[in-house]
């Protein structure tokens, strides 16, 4: 017989993945070559040893730090509601007074002052007016909130605007990434804290040992002057 097994043939046979025809040829070959049989047995012993002496296994000491969101929906409305609440709180807490006349919206900061035609024009803000009216009517939409944000910090408003423009999926992905990064950061921080605590404990133990030795030495000195 001219058949000589290749390396893949050997492995297919050893791991029971040989086709029936290869299996038959291998068995014929092994029957005719005792040294090959010996080699096969040696591999089987190695395999058996590897399995029985598998490296120590244990479970992860840290929990999986991924907190999946409970739902993929409602983030857009949650933001809109939060912004609406923020705007309302600002209005209520900062003493802003809003009055609507037939021709203008009058916003007064601080103590009420008699309005003049000039002040009326200087405090007119159509977009804010629309957003605030929407708030009063409790029918806030993302675009109205977005318009209101025009009067806020430009960069922050831009970020929020981009977020509102993105799709639901993109928003979800962004939040997920932020949450994951933050949880990862927290976990690292926790590990760092644990290490510090461990070091402190070790120092304390070393200090206690030293003190115990000193005490023992002092006692010995007193008992055996």
């Amino acid at each position: 017989m001219n058949f000589t097994p290749t390396e893949p043939d050997w492995m297919d046979y050893l791991y029971g993945e040989a086709t029936p025809s290869l299996q038959a040829r291998m068995e014929q070959y092994l029957a005719a070559h005792p040294e090959a049989q010996e080699r096969l047995h040696a591999w089987e012993r190695v395999r058996s040893g590897l399995r029985e002496q598998a490296p120590e296994t244990d479970i992860p000491v840290q929990p999986l730090m991924i907190h999946l969101r409970p739902s993929r929906r409602n983030y857009g409305w949650a933001i809109a509601a939060a912004l609406a609440f923020l705007a309302l709180a600002t209005v209520l807490l900062s003493g802003i007074r809003i009055e609507k006349t037939d021709t203008a919206l009058v916003i007064t900061l601080g103590q009420p002052q008699p309005a003049t035609p000039d002040e009326d024009s200087s405090t007119r803000n159509d977009s804010l007016y629309q957003a605030l009216v929407a708030l009063q009517e409790a029918s806030v939409s993302a675009s109205q909130v977005q318009r209101m944000l025009d009067s806020l910090d430009h960069r922050q408003a831009q970020r929020t605007r981009n977020l509102l423009k993105s799709t639901q999926q993109e928003q979800n992905d962004r939040y997920e990434a932020v949450f994951q990064s933050f949880s990862y950061y927290l976990e690292r921080q926790r590990q760092s804290d644990l290490r510090q605590i461990q070091t402190s404990f070790q120092q304390m133990e070393a200090w206690t040992d030293r003190k115990q030795q000193e005490t023992a030495w002092l006692l010995t000195q007193r008992m055996n002057p």
Partner: peptide, 18 residues
Amino acid sequence: NTAKSRLYYALEHLRRTL
């Protein structure tokens, strides 16, 4: 086949080491 060859040489290495 490369995977099988790598495993073959690994087992041979371990056998010879022993």
